[in-house]
Design a binder for these strands. Sequence first.
DNA 1: AAAAGCCCCTGGATGC
DNA 2: TGCATCCAGGGGCTTT
Length: 271
Amino acid sequence: MPELPEVEVTRRSFADRIQGAQILSLRLGKPLRWPLGLDPEALRGRRVVAVRRRGKYLLIDLDPGLLLLHLGMSGSVSFAVQQPAAGVHDHVDLVTDQGTLRLNDPRRFGALVWAASEAAPEAQKLLGHLGMEPLSDGFDFAAFVQGLKKRQAPIKQVLLAGEVVVGVGNIYASEALFLAGIRPTTRASKISKPRAAKLYAAVRDVLARAVEKGGSTLKDFSNAYGESGYFQLEANVYGREGEPCRVCSTPIKMIRQGQRATFYCPVCQKP
DNA sequence: AAAAGCCCCTGGATGC
DNA sequence: TGCATCCAGGGGCTTT
C-alpha cells in the first residue's frame, strides 16, 4: 500500500502527538515480517524523542535507541488516547502516556524492528542500501543521472528498487514516468540527460503533490486520524488500463514488469 | 555487480 | 451459493 507519500502523511499525522511521550507497554499480536529483536518489557519508561522517515520506513527515535516501523503492503497506523479493543489484524500497540500507536496490517508484510542506533547493524541492514531522499535537499541531480547511467534494467524497476532514489513505489513510478514522457521499459542507462532532468523533476513533483493530497487511498489507506488520501483521483495512468490518456486519448496500456503491473501511455511516453 | 525470480500473508474480485 | 484462481501501495533473499 504505502509509498513515500502515504508514509510521510502517516508520520505527520501522529509525530507531534507522540513526541515526548513515555512508553508504558508494547503489545505485539501475530508475527510480522521480522521479530522486534528485543524484549518489549525493555521499552517501558523510555521517551519518544521524534518520528522521522527514511524511504518507506518510519524511524521512531527513543531515548535510548529507535524503532523502525514499516507498513508493508497493507499496513496502516492509528493513534488515539483510547484505542478500541484490538482486532484480529492489530499487531502492534505501543501504549504511551499520551496515547496508543496501533499498527493494523492484514497481510503482515510490515514490521517493527528495534535498533540500538541508526548506525547499528540491525538498522543498517534495512537502511544501508537506500538511495537519495527525493524530497530533501540532498536529492542531487548529478548523482541521479550517474545512478541511472550504470543500470541496464528498465527504468521502472530501477525506480522501484530504491537504490538510486527511495520512496517511489508501484503507483508513483508509473505516474512519474508518465509526467516525464518516458516509456517504463526504457533501459535506465539509455536515458539522456535532458530526459533524466524531466524524470528528476517528475519524481519530486508527483511525490510532493501526493503528500499534499494526503496520499493515495486505493483500498484502505488512512493516516493516523483515520482520514483517507485523494491523490488516486489524479492518477494519469495507474489503474487506468484501456481508459483514454488524459492528454492524447490513446488507451492506457498495462504490462507486467517483475511481477508488478505497470501502466503507461504508448503515445505520450517514448522509449 | 547487477538483474531477475521467489516468497512472505490475507482478503477481495472475478470466473466457472 | 460454493470453490478455485488471480491480484494487490513492498522488499529482502536466493539464484542466475
